[in-house]
Design a protein around this nucleic acid. Structure first.
Lengths: 255, 255
DNA sequence: AAATATATGATTGAAATCAATCATATAAGT
DNA sequence: ACTTATATGATTGATTTCAATCATATATTT
């Protein structure tokens, strides 16, 4: 029987995500996980293959792209030029021998991508982000990982143990991501993420938030910091965008 | 017709490399690229799958993991059948809801490979090994990572912070690797690795060392434990091999 | 040099997979 | 409300894939 178009599309998206995570799924598993018949599964696979999002094999399907940290990889591509530009503003603050904390999230990850070619001698990197670890492992920065609980979909470490591990560090520069900023301060979605970011701020001489223009004026569930906390904003938003969201133009770098 | 062993091994290595690069190859392509019959291709795939270096699909094969951890991947293939067999002895000790610590090293890694299909409900995995993280992330075990300093070549976490993080845990079963065992006890090469393993033992109800027969009688730079520490040996060595190294036959499982 | 072990390709029957077709229930269009 | 379009599950016969078996040539061992 016919079902609503959006239902079909949602299911196919789900299947694509599932395959991103699992890399390969036999047809049988696709059927059982999505509770659909073999015929429908095949039809979905045909469509997803047409749009190039997956590849099929006899008896299953897989994703060509597999970054090990998939949902992360999805978001990664978006606006990556602009994220790079933001991250580049951080580099002057990273002196040789200093310690930088790179937070989870795609924008701070952009900084990690710049580090190998920046060649800052004796730089120590502390992070809770597995993609950052994967990217920098084998390079010549000294790499340190907070412990904690893995949030698989985000591939980052959080939880009480991560916060405790953070307290062990003296950070020179923290680089954080956020969901939005309003005149009330900085916002993020998950409490546990914010808890760790607060710990990072408390242990850092300076803390930066990288934020692309679209996120100006947005707020989310958990407040990271108010404007009085010394958190510094780096954004590519224009003066007008900032003014219209009534962001106080305190410490801030624009590009 | 029989061909030299090294030829076979070289061809299989080539196939593994090919798959690393291509991610997925249909059987037909494998045959033509390596100029081998379907039967031989299948046999090669079976072997490579046994050693965990590839995964098969109907009509082809693909690689599950990136070569991000190269030196690790190198050692991985060797003796993997036997390592799997050793690791399998651990499974009965992992009850649902329990917490297992999986140490760095290729032998404990073999255990991680068994976990997804073992499907132990509510199992918590604590580890200092990034390959283990990579393997299990996205699966349905609850995954926790010790913090610490990354040893790039080994892709594992060590150092004082790792030891401290370990103290936060109550482990049911620790699974450790070692360089050798003598009548004097268990040995490993690096002091820092041993320090972490000792912490693991101290926080575990039971601790196992997986050791393939060749390592019986070897000693290395740092002593992990003497025989009185309750560390349990799981090995595929014969009674004779053990006797000739004068290993006391205390707690021990052989296969 | 002789005996043994084994890697290979070919074959084969069984099982799995595939695309196509069909009836039907329900969404979307009028 | 009525008609049309289509997403779905079931079925089917053709095709593909698989593991097992076998004969043979050549490594390896004795």
């Amino acid at each position: 029987m016919r079902v609503a178009k959006n239902v079909v599309e949602a299911r196919r998206q789900l299947l694509a995500d599932l395959l991103q995570n699992q890399r390969y799924l036999p047809l049988e598993q696709i059927c059982s996980r999505l509770s659909i018949s073999e015929a429908t599964a095949r039809r979905d696979l045909v469509e997803l293959q047409k749009s190039g999002r997956i590849k099929r094999t006899p008896g299953g399907a897989f994703t060509e792209f597999s970054d090990k940290f998939p949902s992360f990889a999805e978001r990664l591509g978006r606006d990556s030029d602009r994220k790079n530009a933001l991250a580049r503003q951080i580099l002057p603050h990273l002196s040789s021998g200093s310690t930088v904390y790179i937070d989870g999230g795609t924008t701070p990850y952009a900084l990690a991508r710049l580090l190998p070619e920046a060649e800052i001698p004796g730089l120590k990197v502390v992070t809770n982000s597995l993609p950052v670890v994967e990217l920098l492992s084998g390079g010549d920065v000294s790499l340190h990982i907070l412990g904690g609980d893995l949030v698989a979909r985000q591939s980052l470490l959080i939880g009480e143990r991560a916060v405790r591990a953070m307290r062990d560090w003296k950070i020179d520069v923290s680089v954080l991501g956020a969901e939005g900023v309003t005149k009330g301060g900085f916002w993020n979605s998950a409490l546990e993420v914010v808890a760790l970011q607060k710990a990072a701020m408390a242990n850092s001489k300076r803390s930066f938030v990288l934020l692309i223009a679209e996120k100006i004026g947005h707020r989310a569930g958990a407040q990271l910091a108010s404007w009085e906390c010394g958190l510094e904003l780096i954004t590519d938003a224009t003066e007008r965008q900032l003014a219209s969201a009534r962001i106080p133009s305190l410490k801030m770098e624009r590009i």
